[in-house]
């Protein structure tokens, strides 16, 4: 599996079985009904996976810096998993994938190896119109069935799950110099600058991806911080969200009814 264009054999045969009106999906009944309500039909459960070796990068103990090789690795691994999932969806002739989940698994047998998995449900528009994105690929989104319905009501169409990442190393003893004024509680400007920059980089990269898709904006952005298996001084900042473009004019949501629930 050197390039993402060749899916495993089982995937091919599984996908071949789908697409004759039979579908699988991890949508709940409510989500299924709402996706149908939006004018889409589920085609099948799709996934992509990539096992990546991450963890090689020299860091200088005393310097706060971005670990660009690790950043690249984390990014590429997710991108590979996503691309494979998109290929599966493409095989099914899907317009898009909803409810995408991105997971990272670590196994005991590979200390620095991590499996990146992308899962979701491929959907196709029932009116025959193409909802594929600017790059001719099925759109991806981490929206639930409810969210998918809501966003389509507002006149926005999802384009793709976009992300940006930045792996950063925080200096261990770099503080020594700034500790000159013992007994004071002070801001650490270098520190602030470094971590602020790291988060901004992750967000900028995500936004760049959105721009590539010609998105009007990105909704539901989450900013995650994880140390994975690198120890507490190395942190991955991951920004992830769904890029959307405005399609129709303003479609106003029906005004909700006010109720008070007597349920626990």
């Amino acid at each position: 599996m050197s390039s993402p264009t060749d899916l495993p054999k089982d995937a091919e045969s599984r996908l071949a079985e789908l697409g004759h009106g039979f579908f699988t999906s991890d949508l709940s009944v409510n989500e299924f009904l709402l996706v149908k309500e939006t004018g889409f039909h589920p085609l099948g459960f799709v996934m992509g996976s990539s096992i990546y070796h991450t963890g090689i990068q020299g860091r200088r103990w005393s310097k706060s810096q971005e670990l660009s090789k690790l950043t690249e690795a984390m990014y590429n691994a997710r991108e590979l998993a996503m691309t494979r999932m998109e290929e599966e969806a493409d095989e099914l002739g899907a317009d898009g994938i909803v409810g995408v989940r991105l997971d990272v698994n670590y196994y005991e047998w590979g200390s620095d190896a991590a499996e990146f998995i992308a899962l979701g449900t491929a959907v196709k528009a029932e009116d025959g119109k193409s909802y594929r994105n600017k790059q001719g690929k099925p759109f991806t989104s981490d929206l639930s069935g409810q969210d998918f319905w809501t966003i389509m009501q507002t006149g926005y169409v999802p384009q793709g799950l976009v992300m940006g990442t930045c792996v950063y190393h925080i200096a261990h003893r770099g503080l020594g110099q700034t500790l000159g004024s013992v007994g004071q509680n002070i801001e650490l400007p270098n520190f602030t600058q470094a971590l602020y920059e790291a988060r901004e980089l992750a967000m900028t990269r995500m936004q760049d991806e959105g721009n590539t898709l010609g998105a009007t904006g990105i909704v539901g952005v989450r900013l995650e911080e994880k140390s994975h298996q690198w120890g507490s001084h190395t942190i991955e900042f991951l920004a992830i969200g769904t890029a959307v473009t405005k399609s129709a004019g303003d479609v106003t949501l029906p005004r909700p009814t006010v109720i008070i629930s007597l349920d626990n």
Partner: peptide
């Protein structure tokens, strides 16, 4: 007496928006 209405909700038991969830 309150005489409640009956409703049939179409939501899953999704967690209502908590801004903190932004941070994962």
């Amino acid at each position: 007496y309150l005489k409640p209405d009956m409703v049939l909700p179409l939501d899953d038991a999704v967690v209502q928006f908590e801004a903190q969830s932004l941070r994962g």
